[in-house]
Nucleic acid binder design. Structure first.
Length: 495
RNA sequence: GGCGCAUUCGUCUAGUGGCCUAGGACACCGCCCUCUCAAGGCGGAGAUCACGGGUUCGAGCCCCGUAUGCGCCA
């Protein structure tokens, strides 16, 4: 494909009716990657003509999600640009102008049918097995009839006068030529009775005015495309290159929705996912580079992304794989960087008010201990709460499993004794002290370390024991062992 | 209802007529490492390439039909 790199212009055009969803994020990503790969421009346009559902909050939410993902735009809200404004509701004059032109050329006409009438006719047509589309009755209205309607006070919508013969071909970069018979394209509405343009119309006018060269969007728009092409042609505008992306589905193969769990970028952020991991995962949902590579930095993606490697098949969104990938990205972080990300999570959980309350050094050690054990940042809470809590509870089942062994009393006693004697309470000394216990008591290592772990952390699963004990410190460690001993004795007394 | 798109391991995918007894990744199972859990290493299982026809010396790959799913008109 010959591409004039400098001139490539693509856009992401969300409707601000809600937060940025995974599907939208992927569309934005592919557009952004394509622009960055070719050194073109990435434009953000807000399609807010549906006034009843569009909100300022949604616009800000989408913008902040895009920023968080690192998908920056060259033109659009906040940054401006020479093809603005970038909100459709501020571009009404563009649409009016185009409508006037089409009406004058008789390629559009006024339709006085009310929504109620249309709905009724649609139902009727369906009932009798006929196509439910608009029948085109207002297309042949005489001037007198129009005048009568106007006098009746009827409002009119503007419809496109679709050619009734021939075919329109959509050349899609990944699906090839898709042919539509013009007869099946009804006279669709350009401007509603309320004066606002429809999606198909506004998008074409704006894409042309903004000199968009490539349109990359979901396949759900594929059947809208012939209508749009007809509009480009009617207005003498050059038709952009189309790429229709496969859908993203939920685990049951149905369209992604709330019941599949998190579906918005915001939620993933809150759950402790990293932007790089989300981008990497999304890039691979419908695109691949070769048969081996899975991990791509943003820079890799920019270098390697091409439209011809996009697949046609819809993809099921797999949270498990995203989690795995997020874990990979967490492991790639420096300890300092990871700690910076973890601190607000600990603070939110109420473990401490500011890092110095617990000690930066300790937090750094803890971070290093959990780095390869968490898939999401928020996983850290469950794994580290015992460090911060003054008192830990040992759940009865855990106690039953680990503390019921007859050797436990001896083990805990020995551990307490040895740790108490330590002058330098660091990992090395703690390890040496505890490692001597199995041989001395002639007990398997596991039967020594597990009870100590449970005593000290309250859990059977924890970060590495010796390091953990160092961070906890002598006082807390000894106290927790004592408490466990008491509990054990009680059990023995009762048992 | 019409039109359109899609269909390779459970999931994401590689595959553009002979390199495919179908490759990789996640998940799963086993072993190694090991104080638990992870991480890491090694290995295993898992796909009659939706189905049925055709074209061809040869088809996952090309053509036709069917089924299923999804989308648009809404």
């Amino acid at each position: 494909m010959i591409v004039l790199s400098k001139k490539i212009r693509v856009r992401f055009a969300p409707s601000p009716t809600g937060v940025l969803h995974i599907g939208g994020a992927r569309t934005a990503l592919y557009n952004w990657l394509f622009a960055r790969h070719h050194g073109g421009k990435f434009i953000l346009r807000i399609e807010d003509t549906d006034r009843s559902r569009s909100t300022e909050e949604a616009t800000s939410a989408i913008i902040s999600s895009l920023k968080w993902l690192g998908l920056d735009w060259d033109e659009g809200p906040e940054v401006g640009g020479s093809y603005g404004p970038y909100h459709q509701t501020e571009r009404l004059s563009f649409y009016e102008e185009a409508v006037a032109e089409l009406l004058k050329a008789r390629m559009a006409y006024k339709c006085y049918c009310s929504p109620e009438e249309l709905e009724e006719r649609r139902k009727l047509a369906l009932k009798s097995g006929k196509p439910p589309g608009y029948d085109g009755r207002c297309r042949k209205l005489t001037e007198k009839e129009q005048k009568d309607y106007e006098e009746e006070g009827r409002k009119c919508a503007i419809r496109f006068a679709c050619p009734k013969e021939g075919e329109t071909i959509v050349s899609d970069t990944i699906r090839g030529d898709v042919v539509f018979q013009n007869t099946v394209l009804e006279d669709f509405i350009l401007v509603r009775a309320n004066g606002l343009p429809t999606y198909n119309f506004a998008a074409v006018i704006d894409d042309a005015a903004m000199k968009i060269t490539h349109i990359i969007r979901g396949v759900d728009h594929l059947t809208n495309t012939p209508k749009q092409i007809l509009l480009y042609e009617a207005l003498g505008l050059s038709v952009p290159v189309f790429t229709h992306l496969p859908m993203i589905l939920g685990s049951d193969g149905k369209p992604l929705s709330k019941r599949h769990g998190a579906t918005s970028v915001e939620e993933y952020k809150k759950d402790g996912y990293l932007p790089g991991a989300i981008l990497n995962y999304l890039a691979l949902l419908g695109w691949s580079y070769d048969e081996k590579t899975t991990i791509f930095s943003v820079q890799d993606l920019i270098e390697k992304f091409t439209l011809d490697k996009i697949t046609k098949n819809p993809a099921i969104f797999d949270n498990i794989k995203l989690q795995w990938m997020n874990g990979c990205y967490i492991r790639e972080l420096s300890v300092d960087k990871l700690m910076d990300l973890l601190i607000p999570i600990w603070v939110d959980a109420g473990f401490f008010a500011k890092p110095s309350d617990f000690g930066i050094g300790n937090l750094k050690t803890i971070t290093a201990l959990v780095q390869e054990r968490i898939k999401c940042l928020t996983d850290v809470l469950e794994l580290t709460d015992f460090f911060f809590k003054e008192e830990i509870g040992i759940d009865p089942k855990t106690a039953d499993k680990v503390l019921k062994n007859p050797e436990v009393s001896k083990v805990l006693e020995a551990a307490h004794e040895k740790l108490k004697e330590l002058e330098k309470f660091d990992t090395e000394n703690v390890e040496a002290a505890l490692r001597s216990i199995p041989a001395e008591l002639d007990v398997k290592p596991k039967l020594v370390f597990q009870p100590i772990r449970v005593a000290v952390t309250g859990r059977t699963v924890s970060p590495p024991l010796f390091e953990t004990i160092e961070v906890l410190g002598k006082e807390k460690t000894l106290k927790r062992i004592e408490l466990a001993q008491e509990a054990t004795e009680e059990r023995e007394g009762n048992g």
